[in-house]
Design a protein around this nucleic acid. Structure first.
Lengths: 149, 149
DNA sequence: ACAATTCCAAGTAATTCTATTGGTTATTAA
DNA sequence: TTAATAACCAATAGAATTACTTGGAATTGT
């Protein structure tokens, strides 16, 4: 159930850019802050640019800037865009459903759908702004309830 | 955020064995029901045996049986045993924590911890019996609440 | 002009995932 | 006792993915 390093690195980059809004950051600077190699970052930032999360300036004094404001960057979407569906199995994916020969009568699919929904519930309601403001609430014990009873 | 096919196949096998409790099933029969190759299943079943979920009988009339009763087979544990931590990132794993150089002050870790906790919440409360009885509740819209307010 | 910096394509190395091959050992039934 | 059945086991091979590298082309500011 891992998130790939590509997703992790993309989020690290967005966070760093979010912490320096208004100033242009070079890939090198982002690399220092995120501990990701310049060459790999390059590819990730290019992807983030195509997805319109960031903006670039070429040439001397160039670099990267956030293009959307943090409250409009939804973490679930970033992950989906960079590494595919949030669903643990294709059969339970809403954005990229894949059929499965076992599907009719499959007793596993409801579980995967439930997992997909819980993950999506969390990640689609979290924005870059939430991360920047440390607005994530950790759950412990009894203050966590999945179903309204 | 995918579950590997090994985990999926293991759960399919346990489900099939759960549907035929009391009767010994050969790998071949399990293969037909799960649509997994005999050779790959062999390896998975061996692992499930070492983990004590199933029991085997060698020789003619041999095959596999569940060894634990379905209500004692916790899905989260099966997945963890077969493919590692439920956590999307090592830094947020409770069972197999891995340190990260960015960790102090990392604004991503709380998110990964939250995701880990939600996934674990679902999978550690689901048993094979729940799957066999189709006792998984799909969430929709407003009957799903993550935090008690 | 020149240095800085993004852009881009291609390739490589490592890892993990999935599956196969070729046998060995234990059990049952005839 | 023999033959058939079926689990056990080790080694490895192929495919896919991930992570990263290389080498240069294009753009911009001074």
């Amino acid at each position: 159930m891992k998130v790939s390093s590509k997703g992790e690195y993309a989020l690290r980059s967005l966070l760093v850019l979010g912490q320096h809004q208004g100033t242009v950051m070079t890939i090198q600077e982002i690399s220092e802050k995120t501990l990701v190699s310049i060459q790999y970052l390059e590819k990730i930032l290019l992807q983030l640019k195509k997805l319109d999360y960031v903006q670039s300036k070429r040439g001397a004094k160039g670099g990267y800037l956030l293009h959307k404001s943090p409250e409009n960057i939804i973490i679930g979407e970033v992950i989906r865009n960079l590494e595919g569906p949030l669903s643990p199995m294709g059969c339970a994916s809403i954005t990229q459903y894949e059929p499965c020969p076992l599907e009719q009568g499959c007793q596993l699919k409801p579980l995967w759908s439930l997992v997909r929904d819980t993950i999506a519930y969390v990640l689609e309601r979290t924005t870059l702004e939430d991360l920047l403001l440390n607005r994530i609430r950790l759950m412990k014990g009894e203050d966590f309830v999945v179903f309204k009873e």
